[in-house]
Amino acid sequence: MSDHSASPAHAHVHRDDTGSKLGMWFFIFTEILLFGALFIVYSVYRFKNQDAFHAAALNLDTVIGTINTVILLVSSATIAMAISALQQKNKRLAIILMIATLALAGGFLVNKYFEWGAKFHHGLYPGAEHLVSLGPGQNQFFFLYFFMTGLHAFHVIVGMGFIIFVMRQVMRDQLTFDNYTRLENAGLYWHLVDLIWIYLFPLFYLIH
């Protein structure tokens, strides 16, 4: 452990890059278990309502889902490139790549908005008469669809906030080529957001 204490009063403030990253990894484990519980719920109900899940999944728009998958994959690449750019002392490129990541994330949310909006328009939301008339299994599918993609969208928003936070620090030279762990952690978190979507996408859109 390296101890870069500035003054005796702040002797606790030490910098430990490996420790910070380890902390982020543990947090990612927690997040995976959080979604893991939902994947259990999904698999149990899919097993119990196979035909209804099949019929309900046909209502989802595979094209929008695919576009959003591509968007997230590209945004994972841009945030990773932002870290490399900062490591190579190219602050300007790093900021551009972070803005690109944010723009892609925004695009993902806009697509999500229209996708959800279309579902509401078609009466496919919890409590809607049309959905209730489709029977218990399809209801369960859409409960899970809204809850899991909604929770994922919440993580997208948190990840965007995290990236904006570190971007400000890069702009102010608080994060630099030899002190970039926080940016790396933001990247790790963003990859988690991506990873979860990689599982949500086939489960809801592709399995028919």
Binding site: F29, T30, L33, L34, A37, V41, P126, Q140, F143, L144
Partner: peptide, 25 residues
């Protein structure tokens, strides 16, 4: 704490959503 707690965390959130938004999990 890090591997078990999130499971009950999300389960309790499901209960809250079931009560508030009529999701019948």
């Amino acid at each position: 704490q890090i591997l078990a707690t999130p499971v009950v965390g999300i389960t309790l959130v499901l209960i809250v959503f079931e009560r508030v938004f009529q999701l019948g999990f």
